[in-house]
């Protein structure tokens, strides 16, 4: 089947999709957007979290056909999404299909954040040491960003509740807590 939907603000068309394919598979293997991760593929770990019409979902549990005509934001579009949210504009840029298919790891400098154009929550994860192996990071970023959108001044208990669907095996979550607190503080200070 053919599935038409919007990813990170750009219309996308996926062809020859099997009925059994998940949104996660289509993003990763058909659209060249492997940022959403495949840690469990059974809806338990949250590493594949994306926003579907604004709502955080495990993309491994969404059948590709269900996203027809809908709007998806992945970690690859998070920085743009945050930028547009803060500037209050509706239209969004994102990654073109050709760009996505030709993606290659680039050597950006995380010491300075130079040339990366990160969202506040992405920068906070780096600064706080919340990234180790990083496999849980994309899902956590999407979930944390969504929580901060709803609740700009979360308590620790709020953060834990919002991120309880995202497993991390490396950090013991302490630095993730630090990162979200840091992002919230920077957001409220307007930095």
């Amino acid at each position: 089947m053919r599935v038409n939907f919007t990813v990170n603000g750009r219309p996308q068309e996926a062809d020859d999709v099997w009925e059994g394919e998940s949104l996660l598979y289509v993003l990763r293997e058909r659209l060249g957007l492997p940022g959403s991760k495949n840690a469990c593929e059974q809806g338990e770990c949250g590493s594949c979290t994306v926003r579907l019409d604004g709502v955080p979902v495990c993309s491994c549990l969404v059948a590709a056909g269900q996203v027809e005509g809908r709007d998806v934001v992945t970690v690859e579009g998070l920085a743009d999404y945050a930028r547009q949210r803060s500037s209050g504009t509706g239209a969004r840029g994102g990654t073109s299909l050709d760009e996505a298919k030709g993606w290659q790891a680039k050597g950006a400098d995380s010491q300075t954040g130079e040339g990366a154009g990160l969202s506040p929550v992405q920068q906070a994860f780096i600064d706080a040491g919340a990234v180790q192996c990083g496999f849980c990071t994309p899902g956590l970023l999407v979930a944390a960003d969504e929580m901060l959108e709803r609740n700009p001044n979360p308590t620790d208990a709020d953060i834990r509740e919002a991120l309880s669907g995202n497993l991390c095996r490396c950090t013991g979550y302490e630095k993730i807590m630090d990162a979200v607190r840091l992002a919230a503080a920077r957001q409220s200070e307007g930095v």
Binding site: G32, S36, A108
Partner: peptide, 20 residues
């Protein structure tokens, strides 16, 4: 800070399951 940090927060860092 980690040299691979930016790649890991943007989804660009290529894990073994991302190879294509």
């Amino acid at each position: 800070l980690r040299p691979d940090g930016t790649l890991k927060v943007t989804g660009e860092f290529a894990y073994s399951s991302d190879m294509w």
